[in-house]
Structure formats: structure tokens, C-alpha cells
Design a protein around this nucleic acid. Structure first.
Lengths: 207, 207
DNA sequence: AATGTAAACGGACTGCGGTCCGTTTCTTAT
DNA sequence: ATAAGAAACGGACCGCAGTCCGTTTACATT
């Protein structure tokens, strides 16, 4: 399964291949930090994790945390990495109707349903990752979904600016909105999925 | 023209009527602060305004700034108040096709076009207001657009969960996405408006 | 005018994300 | 083994949003 790298190895540069021999102490600290971060999220929720408390828990300096993950958002992205990769694998290579083999509209519908459930499980982390990320639309994972949606729209025969249309559909599934609907207004996941189905069906058929 | 109060008089309580006799010094400081805030935004942009610099410029203490506006977001909302009220007035009471009198689909299309232009003019403030506002969907203005879109959808004969559908359309027009499209990807306002037209047309006709 | 009191004031203080830079540790070459 | 250089480390430090609470000010009542 192909993996899109979510955390650049060097904070500054563009996404390099992740392997390239990391120094022993760096690797150890990364493991320490990820473990400590998961513990803290478990105990206090994503919002309850502070970079200082994480450093303390892992027994490293605060500078090390930022050297490793770049920012709070980067850390959250790292914590999400596996879940994100799983989701990507499912819609790109998994079984239909989510994966290839089903008609595009069916894949679109399945994509939304899958994403909604994903958000309900990992949304708090995703929200924390998005917050204070000026570039949430340019994160590799976001670009990938966008392209995927755009491709499905094209396959479904949508010729009217599929790039923007994919963007419109994409924001519809963002954690912020989904969690707000569910938590504040008590909307059920099924109702959200049904609404998504209506939306993409109309977008595809309306052409 | 009816005005929806955007800034609660008392930070804690729900939106009370704005009149209710404000103490003379409070009123003076509010005017001072708003004027200073506009100057600072003019000079350094919304992101360049800090609450401390605002307090200094207005010649008041920092506590006063927070007492008056509650938070940075509240201040930005206050700065947007007039622009927001103008927009509200236009889509609720203005001339068609934006205001009442035109068929619902035409009003929906006009709503998007108007909002896009609005965001291009005031978007930076709106973005600053949204950022770090955990409740951006519950801000009075947002609730109002949501209801408006929902109503238009119903009038247009959309029976499939108009509330959620209105929410989906609504996030599509958020400053974050619009500004990102324009500034990072060079999308023209016209192209955005056209895409919105396609979207709402399909949503309405697809039923 | 004097007085009581509720409201507003102001700035020191806290907590957080993020940066900086002198110090330490790993790795490689000799 | 050792020395040199690169990379990682760590915690003091900064700027900012937001809070707290002792002090001041405006208004109403007499």
C-alpha cells in the first residue's frame, strides 16, 4: 500500500522520503514523544495536550518537540498518520464501492460515508491539526482527497469546473462542520451520510 | 432596516438590546477603541493587530479591550458589524434577485455572488473573526444566513433535509476557502460565482 | 454638596505556542 | 581510539490572548 508522507522529515523542506537514516537519539525521542502524546490525548483529549506537558511527559526538552514535529498541528498530523493512511488506502486501493471498480457516483457516496465515520472517530485530532494551520488545504492528505473527488466527478461526467466543485464537496466533510452538527445539534451520522448522498447525487445528475 | 446585534452588550449574557444606557466613559472608550482598531487594521492588516497594541493606541488598559469585546474574535466581529448588516439588509430586504421578489433559485445564485464579493472585500477581518472562534457556526450572522439558505431551498422545492443542505452550501462560501482559492490558486471571483451557480442549480434541480 | 455603590478601569499576571542559541551527542573519517 | 563536524538537544526566552483583582469613576440618592 502506497503511503503519502504526512510529516516532512526536515520541517523546512518539502516532503522528502522518510527513510534516510535518522540519528539514533532522534529516533528514540520520536518514539518517546509519540507514545507520550497518545497517552496525554487519551487522558485529557487533544485540547488538553500542551507542547510543554508533552515534552515533560516524554522527558525531553520543548525544543525537541518542535524540532521533530514543527508545530502543534504537525504533531497532531503525525498522530493521525496511521488513520489517515488507512483511509487513503481504502478509497484508493480497497474494495468497491469505496475503492476502484464501482461506478463513480457510488464511489462518491461511499467516500462521504466513510469520511463521516472517520471524522467521528478521529475528528478531535483532525480538528486540532486544522486549527492554527493556515494551510490546511495544502496539506498532502487534503490535496489527495481533493484530487480523488475531482477525478470521480470527471468520471461521472461533471464537466463544469470539477476542481472547484471538488473543493466545495470537500469542505462539506470537514471535521469542524461534522462534529458541530453531531455534537451541538444532535444530527446522526446516518443523516449526515444521507445528506451527502443527496448532495453528490444532485451534483452528478444535475449536469 | 432591522439589525441583528452582533456584539452582546455584556460578554457573558445572550444578546441583549444594545441601547440600555452605557456609562459615559464606557461609550467614549468604545469609540476610541473602534477608531484605533480601524487605524491599526489599515496600517498592518487584521493579523497585525494585537490586543495590547490596540489598547496602547487607544490609550486604555488591556482589560478594557477585553471587557468591551470579549475576545479578539469579538472585536473583529464588531469591526465587521456594519458590513455584515449591509449584507444582511441586501439579501433580506433589498431589490431582487438578491432580495425578495425573485424566484428562489435566482436568489440563491445571487446570494453566492454577493457573498463572494463580500468576502473579497472584508474576508481578512472575517477570517480573523472566525479563527479561534470555537463557535463560528453559532454566531448570529451565521445562523441567519443558514436559515435564509434553508428557506430558499424549501421554497425551491428541496425537501431532502434542507437544514443540512443549507449547511453544506454555507460552508462552501466561507472566507477561508474563498480566499485560499483566489490568493493561492488564482481563481477569479467570476469563476467562483459560476461554480456556485452550478452547485446550487444542481442541488435545486436534482430533486 | 456629600455619599454609597455598581460599573468600568488598568496593568500585572498566567499559560501557551513557538524561537533561539549555547551545549551535548551521535557518526564518520582517519 | 580519536578527532572533527554535523545533527540533535534543552530550556530560557519572546509575543500574544486572555484573566484577575485592587483602584478609580460615573451616576443616583439624599
Amino acid at each position: 500500500m502506497t503511503r503519502v508522507s504526512l510529516i516532512p522529515v526536515r520541517p523546512g523542506g518539502p516532503g522528502e522520503p522518510a527513510a534516510e537514516s535518522e540519528r539514533r537519539d532522534a529516533a528514540r525521542n520520536r518514539a518517546l514523544l509519540l507514545r507520550a502524546a497518545r497517552e496525554l490525548v487519551e487522558e485529557a483529549g487533544a485540547d488538553g495536550l500542551t507542547m510543554a506537558s508533552l515534552a515533560a511527559r516524554a522527558g525531553v526538552g520543548k525544543g525537541t518537540v518542535f524540532r521533530r514535529f514543527g508545530s502543534r498541528g504537525g504533531l497532531m498530523l503525525a498522530l493521525l498518520s496511521d488513520a489517515e493512511a488507512g483511509f487513503q488506502g481504502r478509497f484508493m486501493f480497497g474494495p468497491p464501492p469505496l475503492g476502484p471498480g464501482a461506478p463513480p457516483l457510488a464511489r462518491l457516496i461511499a467516500f462521504g460515508a466513510e469520511r463521516i465515520n472517520w471524522v467521528l472517530e478521529y475528528g478531535e485530532l483532525a480538528r486540532a491539526a486544522d486549527a492554527s494551520a493556515h494551510n490546511r488545504f495544502d496539506v498532502p492528505a487534503a490535496v489527495l482527497w481533493h484530487r480523488h473527488l475531482e477525478m470521480l466527478l470527471r468520471e461521472a461526467g461533471v464537466t463544469a469546473d470539477p476542481w472547484l466543485m471538488a473543493g466545495a464537496l470537500s469542505v462539506t466533510l470537514e471535521p469542524e462542520r461534522i462534529l458541530h452538527s453531531v455534537r451541538v445539534h444532535g444530527v446522526s451520522p446516518e443523516r449526515l451520510a444521507e445528506s451527502w448522498r443527496e448532495l453528490v447525487t444532485r451534483v452528478v445528475r444535475g449536469g
